[in-house]
Amino acid sequence: MPADSGKKLFVGPRFRRIRQQLGLSQTQIAEGLGISPSYVNLIERNQRPVTAQILLRLAEAYDLDLRDLATADEDRFFAELNEIFSDPLFRQIDLPKQELRDLAELCPGVTHALQRLYAAYTEARRGETMVAAQMADRDEGARFEANPIERVRDLIEANRNYFPELETAAETLRDELNVPAEELYAALSARLREKHSILTRIMPVDVMRETLRRFDRHRRQLLISELIDGPGRAFQLAFQIGLTECAGAIETIIGRAGPLDDAPRRLYRITLANYFAAAAMMPYQPFQAAA
């Protein structure tokens, strides 16, 4: 703390954040500091400075560490925003550095949301690259189909995007669960646990940095990133159930396609499990009735 009690500081956004963390209105914190609510409003808008005396009162009245008003967070947020907007994705956007600094200082919550969104974007982009690499057979002596995605798309079109075995299995699942849509996630989680000994866990993004879902076969755990919303989580559970309970039906459908290389076979299996999950989320008969 500076020795000069008359020193003035402009820390409006940080002052507002502390007030909100304390759950206080501008009027309430003004009463605690012995100043007017209008002065608090001006402080938070950076139109009036905060003196060292006011900071001392703030620390004493609410038992705060004045280091909470330091600029370290804003500097870190600015550096992270600068890294995000350096991505080639934003190359054509002329975004002044001062606007990024203003965003980091005035809207730390928005900054945090952008960080999570960008992390999800980079993960999706990395996933596409990994899939492409896995599908490209680098063994020159091995036979492979040049475009597995096109091959699977042709198979779906040949079946007119309709697989009655999976539709029936999905409707049977929903009939057995017999729950409304808002309770589907809990019911699917219970089925995985009770019928297949698979535990579902929602994991923080810091843990699931490299993927949005992961099935741990050894521990029998389905790990889902917190970035996935409620319906998306239910879809991931239905997808896992499709791979587990409809493995025979899926292999029968794949068998009807004739000889397939490993890459299109794997992609076709994933596509069919996704089909089952979608059908379980929105069974055809109730959908038709509602329509």
Rank of each mutant, 00 (worst) to 15 (best):
3 A>D: 13
57 R>W: 08
104 A>N: 01
186 A>F: 09
26 Q>N: 07
69 L>H: 06
207 V>C: 03
164 P>C: 10
127 G>Y: 04
253 I>V: 15
7 K>D: 05
92 Q>W: 06
148 P>S: 07
224 I>N: 01
46 N>Y: 04
87 D>Y: 07
118 Y>W: 15
145 E>L: 11
43 I>N: 02
22 L>T: 02
228 I>T: 07
63 D>P: 01
111 T>W: 00
40 V>G: 01
6 G>N: 15
180 P>Q: 07
38 S>F: 07
252 T>F: 08
110 V>L: 12
259 P>F: 11
53 Q>H: 10
160 R>C: 10
133 A>K: 14
220 R>F: 00
240 Q>F: 00
262 D>F: 08
202 I>F: 04
36 S>V: 09
279 A>T: 03
170 A>Y: 03
215 F>E: 01
258 G>A: 10
142 A>P: 00
89 L>I: 14
275 Y>K: 04
257 A>M: 07
33 L>N: 02
93 I>T: 11
167 E>R: 14
236 Q>G: 02
217 R>I: 05
218 H>Q: 15
277 A>S: 05
141 G>C: 08
189 S>C: 15
96 P>V: 06
65 D>L: 09
87 D>F: 07
116 R>M: 12
266 R>K: 14
199 L>N: 01
43 I>T: 04
82 N>R: 14
230 G>L: 10
55 L>D: 02
236 Q>F: 06
204 P>C: 11
209 R>A: 13
14 R>A: 11
52 A>E: 12
103 L>A: 12
240 Q>C: 01
220 R>K: 15
178 N>Y: 09
54 I>G: 01
272 L>M: 10
95 L>C: 13
48 R>P: 03
107 C>T: 09
